[in-house]
């Protein structure tokens, strides 16, 4: 028998090693996965909000999944401003109509897409939101216009349950 020949012993070494590796990997997963969002966190996945107390030009901030969500009843001036923007001027082009199901109501996650600070409302060069952390300016549709943030403020999944109630999540 030549030395290079695959022996029964080689086969046993490789299969034993492979089984041990697969076993160790599958056992490692619970230790990694335990850090993912747990069942109690996921259970808080949706929130219903009554919109009646909000007058035009007013915003409220609600908590959804531990994050702030801005709900703004925009003034006609703000809506017009958001609609007349040339899409070519935007770092992350999106139509205002794709961002607000009902133009009067702007619902978005109030977290700067740069590094997660909460932007301040009705501030900045575009009269929308301004993040004080690293200077990102958003317009009246929550679209990034200037600064380090890569994308527009995120729009969460939401539905109008009726004229005056929305459900986020």
């Amino acid at each position: 028998m030549s030395e290079k020949q695959v022996t029964r012993r080689n086969f046993l070494y490789v299969t034993t090693g492979a089984f041990a590796a697969a076993g160790a990997a599958s056992l490692a997963w619970p230790f990694v996965d335990q850090m993912n969002p747990d069942a109690s966190v996921k259970a808080l996945a949706s929130t219903e909000i009554d919109l009646r107390p909000i007058i035009p030009g007013q915003s409220i901030t609600v908590m959804w999944r531990g994050k702030p969500v801005f709900i703004r009843r925009r003034t006609q001036a703000e809506i017009d401003e958001a609609k007349k923007v040339n899409l070519a001027d935007l770092p992350h082009p999106e139509e205002d109509s794709d961002r607000a199901q009902n133009p009067e109501w702007l619902v978005m996650v109030g977290i700067c897409t740069h590094l997660g600070c909460v932007p301040l409302g009705q501030k900045g060069d575009y009269n929308g939101w301004f993040c004080p952390c690293h200077g990102s300016h958003y317009d009246t549709s929550g679209r990034i216009r200037k600064g380090p943030a890569p994308t527009n403020l995120e729009i969460p999944d939401y539905v109008f349950l009726n004229e005056s109630t929305i459900k986020i999540g």
């Binding site: 850090m35 969002p37 997660g116």
Partner: peptide, 12 residues
């Protein structure tokens, strides 16, 4: 999300 154990910085 894995680092946070949720969707934002919190207790986990």
């Amino acid at each position: 999300n894995w680092l946070w154990g949720g969707y934002a910085v919190g207790s986990p």
